[in-house]
Write a protein that binds this DNA or RNA. Structure first.
Lengths: 333, 333
DNA sequence: ATAATGGTTGAAAACGTATACCCTTTGAAA
DNA sequence: TTTCAAAGGGTATACGTTTTCAACCATTAT
């Protein structure tokens, strides 16, 4: 592959001049510029991004850490990031760290080795201290779907407690007095926060949520099916089910229908996230909209901004609140 | 950030020795090795991937070109690649090129600037010649979901003609004599090939597929709805619909149901791809399984293998054939 | 005519790493 | 005792860029 040196030789100029032409630098005559450009074209020259990054200490790529790409939630997240990197001519360096301490750490470290100065990271397994530490090393370090007070201005997050509350309040307003909850079995913040919100609303309405009405499982369709199966097996009575996410809600609906229980006529079901399948499944899912894509774009913009030298403002944070999307899976009772 | 030089100074050894320790090179005593390692640990040393790539001419990352991340198909593709890059300690450099000539080209070129020697590219807009040209420049250049005879051994692809045929044959075997087709409006190979297969099967069964029974739209749920709407508007009679993909099939089902037409009792619907939503939607979609994830893993392995110097074998190619997944959206008539 | 100016260009150092090649020490074989 | 090989370690160069500084040339103002 042709280097800057080859071009210089062919054009009969120095390395410096060629470099200036490449970067649209100021100090080069228009005829020389034209000639050099022509030769670059002819020889199919492509600047070496690695050499560039080495000397400029700027990497022209943004690191992204997520859990699993085939989870629609993360696919949307990645897409949100991608839409802004594309605009800024920045490359995405992708690392997957499957909600495990070891892999998440490894993912971030690899990105660090590439000297990316902007990063959008989704981390659930790493503790606050570690992440704060990283944020000191990387100017454009931004967390998504997580809130850490010390670096509040680097956090783009969803108010899950309010989300849980909204969910429960809506169900209650529709007249449901016996609600069951299907939660995620992972010991991370999200399910706990959502559950906390649900509990608050229920208490406030002078209702009760016995532990036996809460089932934990993997946050996917199978988990939803399993959880619902368990709920039905206990013989518990409920007219509404609040699920941790849309996939679990969908699984729960399937299981209800398989038991001859009509949704929403006999049991209402609510999801969370509003991923694609919420619109696809039947009945269409009433759910909470999690604007991941928008948030991811915001996070990417933030990362790029901080990376370019702008200092984050103190006392600022980027909190989003989910909103209820009313579709067909919840009915007034 | 600490460099190799800082480590060398702190440890009182030369750069070369430190470098040897980092790379587990041979010529260094076990006590020195231990001492240097300790210092690296203390100073939080991280090798600079750019400098490394520059001098070794190896990039330690694999380039991926896809259209849109939030399309579940591409999310699965990316996931398939990711599973093998993770095993090989290779980073993913992601470029999205939204089925447009300009952006696809730009995506590949950016990757080239990063000097990745392994690439998995999904390109529909670029012509054969351009891609063949790229394959000469990049040792580990592998195409997915496309077949180009000249570089057959770098293609991991699905036999779409056979897929289309299988679809139609299955519908016909279930007794359907009047089938409609909902295809993608994009002028790329896939829809044409699938349609070709469908036509073959129909002709072979002595049936007819009038042009009026084929609708074209964007390959998503909205497109499926629109296409079905048009089909219904023409008053055409059909008992089965073959869709270009699962999203369109799902949209078509919605529209049918909205018109009070029962699926599958009155009209059967078939999808293609078997993405997640095929299992989620109601009725569950009978569809053709496109093993993207497996194929993407294969492509990544191939790319890495070729990149590491192994020459592709002549006359070899990686063709996959879709299989029918029978669920609930097709019924015998 | 001379000095000053401004626009072009080139030489060289630097970025952080890997490695080919050379030097030293040590112990054993001759 | 001499010779030699092996092991351990250092020196210097290269990778492909960007950028600072200085030099050159042709004008123009004095």
């Amino acid at each position: 592959m042709a280097t800057i040196k080859d071009i210089a030789q062919a054009a009969g100029v120095s390395l410096a001049t060629v470099s200036r032409v490449i970067n649209d630098g100021p100090k080069v005559g228009s005829d020389t510029r034209k000639r050099v450009k022509k030769i670059m074209e002819e020889m199919g020259y492509r600047p070496n991004a690695n050499a560039r990054a080495l000397v400029t200490k700027k990497s022209a790529s943004l690191g992204v850490v997520i859990a699993e790409l085939h989870d629609p939630f993360f696919a949307m997240l990645a897409h949100g990031v991608e839409s802004v990197t594309r605009k800024n001519n920045v490359q995405i360096l992708l690392s997957a760290g499957s909600i495990e301490k070891e892999t998440e750490l490894r993912a971030i470290e690899t990105l660090l080795e590439h000297r990316v100065e902007a990063m959008v990271v989704h981390s659930k397994a790493l503790d606050d201290k570690t992440l704060v530490e990283f944020s000191k090393q990387v100017p454009g370090f931004v967390l998504i779907n997580r809130y850490i007070p010390e670096i509040a201005n680097r956090c783009v997050w969803l108010d899950n407690v309010t989300g849980g509350r909204l969910m429960a309040e809506y169900a209650i307003n529709q007249g449901h007095e016996h609600v069951a909850v299907i939660s995620s079995q992972y010991r991370i913040d999200d399910p706990n926060q959502r559950l906390e919100g649900v509990r608050t609303a229920i208490k406030h309405a002078n209702l009760v949520l016995p532990e036996s009405m809460i089932e934990y499982a993997t946050p996917d369709q199978e988990g939803g099916e399993l959880a619902m199966q368990n709920l039905l097996a206990t013989g518990a009575k409920f007219t509404a089910v609040l699920a941790y996410n849309d996939a679990m809600a969908s699984g729960a609906m399937t299981m209800l229908q398989d038991h001859g229980i009509a949704v929403p006529e006999q049991v209402s079901v609510m999801g969370y996230d509003d991923v694609l399948l919420a619109k696809y499944c039947r009945p269409k899912l009433t759910t909470l909209r999690y604007p991941v894509e928008m948030m991811a774009s915001k996070a990417a913009e933030l990362a790029l901004k901080y990376a370019s030298g702008k200092k984050p403002e103190e006392g600022l944070t980027f909190k989003y609140t989910p909103t209820i999307i009313k579709r067909d899976s919840v009915v007034r009772v």
